[in-house]
């Protein structure tokens, strides 16, 4: 099934806005009445990662060429694993200190797979946009990892600007580059 390019672009804009809304809600601290920051523990992120992983696996199944299948199944695995662990943590059935690393590593992994995909298919439609998006996700993942390792900045959502920039790229993507 091939969608008209304008509809693909409209999808990018709308879903970029949804992503922006959700990451702002997840990462921007709510300063409570006691002036202490409170962070969201909503299971929304976990389910969204899970459904996203299932969707990427659907992309594996419907891929045009073999290399797309190979890259996308890794993506799907990453999102499914991260989603399951985030869900378990947020619902309180499995809690370990290392689970703090799951979301940053998932973001980093998604960014790296973007770069791998662009490397395999450098002349692809919107390759520069995908390269930028990959770099932003890598930066966001690394900054979130830094935040975990550096307690002095733990309260500052370092990765948020890069994630927000990623969302803004989706919102701003031109019709010709959306794919």
């Amino acid at each position: 099934m091939i969608l008209p390019q304008i509809q693909i672009a409209r999808g990018h804009w709308i879903l970029g806005a949804l992503f922006l809304a959700i990451i702002l809600d997840e990462y921007l601290p709510l300063i409570g009445r006691d002036d202490q920051p409170a962070r969201s523990r909503s299971p929304l992120i976990g389910w969204a990662l899970m459904i996203g992983g299932a969707g990427v696996w659907a992309t594996v199944i419907f891929a045009d060429v073999v290399h797309d299948m190979l890259v996308h199944f890794l993506w799907g695995d990453l999102l499914l694993a991260a989603g399951a662990l985030e869900l378990a943590r947020r619902r309180g059935v499995y809690e370990r200190p290392w689970l703090d690393y799951v979301l940053p590593l998932a973001i980093l992994g998604c960014g790296l797979l973007f770069l791998v995909h662009v490397e395999i298919d450098p002349e692809g439609q919107g390759a520069r946009w995908h390269l930028s998006m990959g770099l932003l996700l890598v930066a966001a993942g690394l900054l979130e990892l830094l935040r975990l390792r550096w307690p002095r900045v733990a309260a500052i959502p370092l990765g948020l600007p890069a994630l927000a920039a990623f969302a803004l790229l989706l919102i701003a993507i031109p019709v010709a580059a959306a794919s």
């Binding site: 693909i8 999808g11 990018h12 879903l15 970029g16 949804l18 992503f19 959700i22 909503s42 299971p43 929304l44 992120i45 389910w47 969204a48 990662l49 899970m50 459904i51 996203g52 992983g53 299932a54 969707g55 990427v56 992309t59 419907f62 891929a63 045009d64 060429v65 290399h67 797309d68 996308h72 993506w75 999102l79 998604c110 797979l113 973007f114 995909h117 662009v118 298919d121 450098p122 002349e123 692809g124 439609q125 919107g126 390759a127 995908h130 998006m133 996700l137 989706l170 794919s179």
Partner: peptide
Amino acid sequence: RRASASVGLAVLLLLLVPAVASAHAV
């Protein structure tokens, strides 16, 4: 609300991944 937002983000996550269009001769 959570379910709607989850579905929205999930569909978005599909877009996090470059679609399966290729520059190769398809």
